[in-house]
Design a binder for these strands. Sequence first.
DNA 1: AATAGAACTGGACAATCGCCCAGATTATCC
DNA 2: GGATAATCTGGGCGATTGTCCAGTTCTATT
Lengths: 211, 211
Amino acid sequence: MTSFAIPPSKLAKSPGKATKRSGKRADKKRELAGHAISTLGVLGYARTSLRDIASQSGVSLGVLHYYFEDKVELITYCVKLYKQNFVELLDAPILSEGSPAAVIDGFIDGLVGAIAEHASTHRLWYDIRAQALFDEAFHSVVREIEDALIALVGRFLKRLNLETMSAFSLYLLCDSLFRYYLQQHLSGDERALAAFRAALVEQFAALKPGV
Amino acid sequence: MTSFAIPPSKLAKSPGKATKRSGKRADKKRELAGHAISTLGVLGYARTSLRDIASQSGVSLGVLHYYFEDKVELITYCVKLYKQNFVELLDAPILSEGSPAAVIDGFIDGLVGAIAEHASTHRLWYDIRAQALFDEAFHSVVREIEDALIALVGRFLKRLNLETMSAFSLYLLCDSLFRYYLQQHLSGDERALAAFRAALVEQFAALKPGV
DNA sequence: AATAGAACTGGACAATCGCCCAGATTATCC
DNA sequence: GGATAATCTGGGCGATTGTCCAGTTCTATT
């Protein structure tokens, strides 16, 4: 009846060729998701069609449906991928051996650099997070990412022995600043990056009891 | 050639019937926008078609284009209307004659009540704000509303003689808490409202130097 | 009552959407 | 090298979108 190609995906049992295949498949999914993120970051979730993503990725439309169940799964996958990269980026200074001041500086550099270099990727996150307010399909992804970001901030606080402040509060603070200055930056405000850095420096200076 | 009905809109010169007519037109616009907000709050910006709004409003599709240039103008108008109501609601306790504690309580009640009773209206705001990250057409509305909200928080601080904190910082704090607990509330978390209130009480208690 | 203009109707339009699938192409293994 | 499965193509489907507009109904002024 159908030309159904059963996705080998999770079924990999024999560690031989099966894992090699599903590894290739996973690699391709990541590659496609990478291109998809670029396109989604330009147009946003609602305005981006699968055809846009396909042509931007240099593949045909059918390929996307071959690797992803539907548009929601594609977006979900993309956002998870984005999260991994972002958390790893911000984790680097936290897990480093530097002084507390160096940790803070590295953290700030990561945040400011994210707006400077990956603004369109991050506006996609805020888009998806807003969509989640309407579409249950995005609830779990958004929850998952926010938990990961709160945990990241928690590691940051622990690293600096600042366990007086809750990770949740600091997450909200960083997130609101990040969103606001991302918006300013995208509106064409050239001072946005400097203002963002200044705001972060001020906030982080305020919360130290004794470092 | 066309059956063009020129909208009298701003052209009202003679204060007699012209203003009466444009007043009627403005009333109708507000009425339509009110219905539109309800529909948009359910489905979100991208998923809501003009047909949805028309049928929900009990009017035909053409009426919407008769009163609004296009979808963007309709949404812009709706969001401005929403802002007016929300700011007026939160201004009430600030402009009242009560004690500082009563002002704070009234402000908190306004915020918690907004999530409790108008959650779907407010998620529309976060949706539009996210769309503004992609679509320049929404830049000015979002900027305008955020400025109004910052000014509102500024009046709150001034009323309490708490000019030590910046209105901007407090706005970001309130907004991030509001958004987070709105999200929790919409996810089905029944403790969200109580947790939101507790968080507000804690934050407002922390910032008093000596009231 | 007549008439002009505002207010409104709803069908038609081209464009686009996500999704499906039969067939072509390529890679992999015995 | 032949067979089997994985991968990929791209046209088609039904549904939906924003917009437009020719025509109808209502309202208010003369």
